[in-house]
Design a protein around this nucleic acid. Structure first.
Lengths: 344, 344
DNA sequence: GACGCTATAGTAAACGTTTACACAGCATTT
DNA sequence: AAATGCTGTGTAAACGTTTACTATAGCGTC
């Protein structure tokens, strides 16, 4: 019948701790946050009371009083996509380093969901915002960028806000990809692009086309395919490409998922990789090295990008304008999926 | 020089909206939450003011006043692990369906980080808690389970709290895996287990051993390997197994990642799969169907588990004890990585 | 015209923290 | 002995919402 635990349903508050420890709430706050010196005696009493009550500071009340939620928000298309998994992982790591929690939202390539997700994150007063939203229009995104000067965009360039956009050079990456095939003697190169309406897709297509042009190769519309950049898309792309079997010796894909599943479909149809068709991917996912043949690809340093975007956003939130984004370079990862046609 | 926008740094509050719309804060709250009838005139004034100011309700203040954070917390080992990526994805989807946001923390198999992550989630007053923590001791976890009756555990059975533990039957799943190899005529079966100190590992090992025993097969300690259940682990397992090349015709792995990378390492060493060695995985990840040969494996319905755990936690939080967890069954996905030795 | 009812709207007290400010006690300086 | 400074502590006002309670206007009924 003690005073504690009168209502087992209710969480204890800082006042309960103060009462039990026989100190003021200010002292409890100071001990728990380490924000000011407190006598050994008081500190021990507070810690003991905290342990006894199983007390944790209420982060919401804290956020309100401090005007800082200590939460970072991140929006991605879909966490289960390995690309975003890696990205979210590094965002969380950086957040954790700064003692912050991570709020994760998914947009699923839907403009409505993306916008709602952003507004939800905003309502949580995030002290850092990393946004991957490719479906909402520039105009809308720009308004958020203007109102929230610590918001950082990933994988998209928004005119006027270039210094808060974190991306690789898609054009250059795909140019490197296709050039690699060309250097290996390929002259008829198919391209499987993403069918999402996103700049990544058009930039990579431009890189593909430019590489062909620079090497005086003709463009063959038959072998430029657009599919959802997922496993299923790769299988469908393979079906379409089979109809033009003689018109290419190599395939450059928008990403590893497309390359991997297209490759698998070809192999199942008895087409040997890389003997009959060579492949190159993009992203350098976890899975590419497990494939047989292992997939030659272009790195997409998504972990660095996630980490840098998070760091930048945090710095901006605290009005620190000194953080400079590093360069995110795309480099070639040479594996076994390209046959060198010059060799024989 | 209007009254608005006096301090461009500061976010508008509900009071600013009320003033601009010439109504009380209560009315603004009612409009924005739809909690009571408001005249058309007032509603329009409020919505107009909201739009003009770019106002969003402060979720922290809201949480405090309502005593409900509208946030669900989830702890996993590592978001970039495809297994957890899928899990987090479905947690977010369910959270979203209920209008809640998702807080994601990572434990990285470290007991200290796991415990800190849980306490951090608790401090955020999550109205739903899905915890995958395999490294902290039962005793500690039990204390949390007792204090927070809406906390749900995933992939672990905590004695006394079975009805809040969401898992597959690991024993049964691995028994199915090994039995499948045996049915295909294999009698010497290697096992690559997870080296993490988790019950999943011991349960699956038990399933392996039991399947051997039930079919009167001998246990060969040489070909039971423990490795980190990631790609690198699979490569190392392959190296170890090569030393006992003649002592097995098939490999059962703790998960697809181990199977995939072990398989790839074997192939690179010139060992043909499934002609010389058969493989079976566990989890049925995205990548397994892309491999060559595609990997026969056991489903791990992690998406259902994530969704169910989230639903259960939400229900419990609202004192609704009617939600019953479904059964999570493991089923065999037959692909091309097993050679049938009976066939010839 | 008095009355009661309904429909809207407003007032102000919570919610659980942080922190500016005040102050008490004590040691040191003058 | 008085003045000063330093330490540790407490008090109470924010922070931005929600919501119980209260107030008022409009209207129909008797």
């Amino acid at each position: 019948m003690t005073d504690l635990n009168q209502n087992p349903e209710k969480q204890p508050t800082i006042r309960d701790v103060a009462k039990l420890a026989q100190v003021s709430v200010a002292t409890v706050s100071r001990v728990l946050n380490g924000t000011a010196k407190v006598s050994e005696k008081a500190r021990n009493a507070v810690l003991k009371a905290q342990r006894e009550l199983g007390f944790y500071l209420n982060a919401n009340a804290r956020a309100l009083a401090q005007k800082d939620s200590e939460v970072i928000g991140v929006l991605v298309s879909e966490v289960s996509d390995p690309y975003f998994g890696v990205m979210v992982r590094s965002c969380e790591e950086i957040a954790h380093e700064h003692g912050k929690a991570l709020l994760v939202a998914q947009g699923f390539h839907d403009p409505v969901r993306e916008q709602r997700a952003i507004e939800n994150l905003l309502s949580h007063q995030c002290s850092g915002l990393v946004i991957h939203a490719l479906s909402i229009p520039d105009r809308v995104l720009a308004r958020y960028m203007q109102d929230f000067p610590y918001m950082v965009i990933i994988n998209r360039v928004l005119p006027g806000y270039e210094d808060r956009c974190v991306n690789i050079n898609n054009f250059q990456g795909m140019y490197l990809s296709v050039s690699t095939l060309i250097k290996n003697g390929h002259r008829k190169i198919a391209f499987i692009n993403s069918s999402h309406h996103i700049v990544d897709a058009s930039e990579r297509l431009a890189g593909y086309l430019c590489a062909l042009r620079d090497h005086n190769l003709d463009v063959n519309e038959n072998i430029i395919i657009s599919e959802l950049p997922l496993l299923e898309g790769g299988a469908r792309a393979a079906q379409k490409l089979m109809a033009f079997r003689g018109e290419f010796t190599a395939v450059a894909a928008y990403n590893d998922a497309l390359a991997a599943s297209c490759m698998a479909t070809f192999e199942n149809a008895g087409i040997k990789v890389p003997d009959e068709v060579s492949f190159i991917g993009f992203d350098n996912l976890f899975l590419s090295s497990c494939l047989n043949p292992s997939l030659t690809t272009i790195t997409n340093p998504v972990d660095d990008m996630g980490a840098s975007a998070t760091r930048l956003s945090l710095a901006l939130y605290h009005h620190d304008y000194s953080y400079k984004l590093p360069e995110f370079s795309t480099i070639l990862i040479n594996r076994k999926s390209i046959r060198n046609l010059n060799a024989n």
